[in-house]
């Protein structure tokens, strides 16, 4: 058994909004091992985005213990946490979050800037990474000169250029049409298999979630189920786990997305891949 990439023990996260405490997570325990392929599913407002922010070290828990890359988040200062993110975590966002006016290769090289890598080496590594995601011919294009799928692939290259232990993908296909989304998913899965980076993908698309080896269903700030199964089709049992109560969450999602998150707000290809209206980046609390 290798050391866990991320370990959360009874982690909770409470927000103070105008003096009212809102619990986004109410005691979550889970371990992400190296090389795992995990889907985190749940409706809007379930706390899955909060969980993702915590696992990525973007946020700190208000209770419980969170260990990322062997380091307890509670013991780290803000700069140390930033360094930990740089070394251990790669992020892929639904909205890509590429720097406009900056070429693909420089976008990919950005995390290396904060690692203190020299300019020349940065570019070499970024270019190589872009080659791995199939964008070797787009090094000097700016985001607005790239298609949505290409932009997300640049973002994936940026997430992986630091060779992190965990790749956190928050609705990575949410802004893409189904064919492009499928290609991006395949790329993520291939990189997960090739490089051994743990892939944690937040989604509320059941079809997308079904491809993962492990599915964690989050609802009302708690983990409702955590099921592992073999690579689909590789073993006899093959089919996605059925213990998962997530399907029952779907109507909730459709009718009751959180305030400020109108259904379908992101304008994604909702009809193409799933039955669910897409929400924004996912309500945290």
């Amino acid at each position: 058994m290798t050391v866990a990439a991320v370990e959360a023990v009874d982690v909770s996260r409470t927000y103070e909004l105008d003096g009212v405490s809102v619990s986004a997570l109410r005691g979550v325990s889970l371990t992400i091992d190296q090389g795992e392929y995990v889907a985190v599913i749940g409706p809007s407002g379930s706390g899955k985005s909060t969980l993702m922010h915590l696992l990525g070290g973007l946020d700190r828990p208000t209770g419980g213990r969170l260990v990322i890359g062997g380091r307890d988040v509670a013991s780290l200062t803000a700069p140390e946490l930033a360094t930990l993110r740089n070394e251990t975590i790669g992020f892929v966002f639904q909205a890509f979050h590429l720097l406009a006016r900056t070429s693909a290769v420089d976008n990919v090289a950005l995390p290396l800037v904060y690692r203190g890598v020299g300019a020349r080496q940065r570019r070499e590594r970024a270019a190589a990474m872009l080659g791995r995601v199939g964008l070797g011919h787009r090094l000097h294009h700016r985001p607005n000169q790239l298609s949505g799928g290409e932009q997300q692939r640049v973002a994936i290259a940026r997430a992986l250029v630091t060779e992190p232990a965990v790749l956190l993908a928050d609705e990575p296909t949410g802004n893409l049409d189904s064919a492009t989304g499928e290609a991006v998913l395949e790329l993520l899965e291939r990189l997960n298999a090739e490089s051994g980076v743990a892939l944690v993908m937040v989604t509320h698309d059941q079809e997308v979630a079904a491809r993962a080896h492990r599915r964690i269903a989050v609802r009302d700030g708690l983990i409702r189920s955590d099921t592992r199964h073999d690579r689909p089709g590789s073993a006899g049992s093959g089919a996605p786990a059925t213990l998962d109560p997530a399907p029952s969450a779907e109507p909730r999602s459709a009718s009751g997305s959180g305030p400020g998150h109108p259904p379908g707000g992101s304008g994604g290809a909702a009809g193409a891949t799933g039955r669910l209206p897409r929400t924004g980046a996912g309500g945290a609390g």
Partner: peptide, 16 residues
């Protein structure tokens, strides 16, 4: 602001 968030996510410290 979003750029700042992204830079922080990929490892920029507050000082940076």
């Amino acid at each position: 602001t979003r750029e700042i968030g992204l830079r922080k996510a990929v490892g920029a410290r507050p000082r940076d």
